[in-house]
Structure formats: structure tokens, C-alpha cells
Amino acid sequence: MTIIIALVALGSLTLLLALMLILANKKLYVYEDPRIDIVEDLLPHANCGACGFPGCRPFAEALVSGRALPGKCTVSTDAGRQKIADYLGVALGAEEKIVARLACAGGINVALNRARYQGVKTCQAASLVSGGGKGCFWGCLGFGDCEVACDFDAITMNPFSLPVVDVDKCTACGDCVEACPKELFSLQPISNRLWVACKNLDAGDEVLEDCQVGCTACGKCAMDAPGGLISMINNLPVVDYSKNHNTQAPIQRCPTGAIVWLDDEEGVVKGRESKKIIRKGERGMGFS
């Protein structure tokens, strides 16, 4: 008998609660576009924020509501973006690919160390101790904070302790820009091929003492550049990318190779007159 009472009591309670849940589901239902889920599934789930939205889900919501176009997602492949565009029936909104570029070429084979840094092996820590051991105040410290920060394996440290960006993998999320204590990374449209790979504000032979590929502020690139494309500001050439910058003329007479041409096939192209660096080992220590 007891068991029957228990069954009936619990059973009716279950039914009652189920009824309430059904009613609540009907009454409090929030309509959400089912396309959001589908679009989110088509996105790469990297949640990197490169599109300008907090993550893939908010971006999917923006796509469905028409506030953004699929081209904004830099992580997805061309086919993936096209798929979203086809599904939603919107334009692809193709944008030019943006990549992270490093404004330093001072690997350990060309840059002099003034002191050997010992301690926490990160760039952040090294930069707090007298700016790191390098002779150049502005140069890359080479401990690879950017490599660690990159979620896409787009940055690897080369044998000279200098980060190399894999342009295909880079999504321009900006993590490396934030990670670098020397602020050497910046996000650039991939068509900006004329590139100044130096941030040293000194001028003349002082620069060469610390780094053989530093900019000595000789100004030849600015002279050779057509129509005010390059101006010398604070001892560094500054390229005005709003002008036609599709020319290799400015790099040709650079004595150190501080201004380079970033080519898709050939990689980093230096000018004819720039010194060839053949040293494979460390340049070593120097005391002044």
C-alpha cells in the first residue's frame, strides 16, 4: 500500500512540475534565429577577436543581422568564408589580408650584446632590467614572448633568435603586438611590401656598432623614393602607404639593408648595395 501512495504522490508531482516547465517554455520562449547556430558552426571557433567582435558567437550574430560581412574573419579559409556568404546570401566583403610585421632584423648574428641577461627568460622580464642585454635600446630581445602569445603557431623563432611570421597562418589578431615589450610588431595590409625593419632612433656609425643591419639615417631611401613616399622622421624612414608604394627603388641604395622588400615568393629582398651578412654564429659581446 505504502509503495502505491509513494508512486502516486511522486508521479503526480512529476506531472505537475513537467506541466509547469512546458508552460514556462511556451511563455518565456525567446526567438533566436536558427541561422546563428549554423553560421557559428561554419566559423573556425578560434575566438581570437581579430574580426573586432568578442568571439565567434557574437560575430555570427552580427553576420546574421547584417552588421558585418564574412570577409572580416581572417582565420577562416577562402572556401569557408564563401560558404558563409553563400548560406546567408550576402556579399563576401573580401578585405585585404592583414598580417603582423616585425620592425627589427637584429638577430644575434648581427646585433651586439652589451651584457648577458640572466634571469626570467621572457622579453617582458628582460626589458625591465636595464632594457635587456642588447646594445640597441629598441631591438628584439629574442626570448619569444610573441611566439608564446601567438595562438595560431604563426610565429617561430629563427636560429638567430628573431621571430618570423608565417604570413599564411597569421590572422592579425594582434596578440603579438601586445606581447612585445619593445612594440616592434604592427598590423599591416599584406600589400605594404616596402618595409623598414628597424626602430633605432640613433643615427650614423653609432647604430652599426650595436647592429649591422640597423638604419643609420643616411636618407638615401627617402631621396630615391618617388614623390615624397618616404620621409625621414626621428632618424628613421617613414613610408607613407597612402601613396603609390609599389616600387623597389628606395631599397636599392640602402647600405645596411634596413629597408627591405617583402616578396611573396622570394621572402625578404634587400637592396643591391646592402652588405651581405654571412655570419651564422653569434656576434657576441661588446663592452664600451
Binding site: V120, T122, Q124, V129
Partner: peptide
């Protein structure tokens, strides 16, 4: 390197 890493942490 304890205090050295705290310096980094505080800066961050």
C-alpha cells in the same frame, strides 16, 4: 627568480 617575476607580474 621570485621577485624578478613579481616585477613582471606587477607591470602586466
Amino acid at each position: 627568480p621570485l621577485v624578478q617575476s613579481f616585477r613582471v607580474g606587477k607591470a602586466m
